[in-house]
Design a protein around this nucleic acid. Sequence first.
DNA 1: GTCTATAGTTGGATAGAC
DNA 2: GTCTATCCAACTATAGAC
Lengths: 188, 188
Amino acid sequence: MSTPERLIESTRELLWERGYVGTSPKAIQQHAGAGQGSMYHHFSGKPDLALAAIRRTAEEMRATAEAVLGGDGSAYERVAAYLLRERDVLRGCPVGRLTMDPDVIASETLRAPVTETLEWLRERLAGIVQEGLDQGEFTPALDADEIASTIVATVQGGYVLARSTGSPAAFDAGVRGLLALLAPHRAG
Amino acid sequence: MSTPERLIESTRELLWERGYVGTSPKAIQQHAGAGQGSMYHHFSGKPDLALAAIRRTAEEMRATAEAVLGGDGSAYERVAAYLLRERDVLRGCPVGRLTMDPDVIASETLRAPVTETLEWLRERLAGIVQEGLDQGEFTPALDADEIASTIVATVQGGYVLARSTGSPAAFDAGVRGLLALLAPHRAG
DNA sequence: GTCTATAGTTGGATAGAC
DNA sequence: GTCTATCCAACTATAGAC
């Protein structure tokens, strides 16, 4: 892997684990096995490198979600597949965790990929729920946009619960609860 | 307010806004209008002060939740009251946000109040849902513990969505979605 | 109890040699 | 492209005067 590649990948790991505020250029360099001069040759500084890392992580998250959401099956089945897909629960969401990072939120540039990714996910899910409504799969009492928000929130909040206890159990429970609530709305 | 009081309150504010990693002793002192010597006289250091702040925040969160959850009304009504209670959505949850703080999670001592508070909330809600189940208010298809996890996760994740967009709208949508899903399970 | 002085470490970055 | 040297501010804390 090239040096810029290694720097980006190292930054992705550290941002995931320690957040933007908790990640220093020095730590990135050491993790990447690159010197100071090398890092500042390829990137203008910490924000520049972080932006590259965040963009890639966001892209990857979209691709991972799309792989499940764009699959076969009914709306409910695709939502269930998304909720039940394998996750590194205790590490949390590498995109969602950035919303708790004050410096990321304060920077228009760094926040943009975060906003866009979570909004994309919300809308993608809303589209699927709407499909289910249109085809009579769900009872019409539901609002697609609201349900999509609930789904994303349950996942993001599930990470919080899991990390607080140090066990994925609460995440799984939250997901099962949501699926149980959603199930009886199925008409087909 | 006494100096220790001001230091604790300032730490609470800063932990909420910037997290543990992003909060320096110096910032706390300035916010509290206290000198270095003063702070180190009353507290052994940053972790000690943070612990006092976190404990108080955790206590307050419990009291706020209990005020709503211990009120009158059916199980559904109390859950709805909890979900719909007024919140400073964009600031997020002062307890939940700490789960994304690597140094808090790494410290048994600092993490304990976080774990305990979120577990208490989960169990408190589970008790209410179970009450609803026992009294035939909800259809027996539901598992109290799972639903409680879903409720807490929706709230915690709602903060993530709100902060990512800079607007409380997504939080509100997630909550309404959850209530819509829960409603038809009501027998009474 | 509070203040100032001091100190070692890290954060984040620049300069210039190679 | 990479390395070393250098820089200044901030972080976290201790020491000792008042």
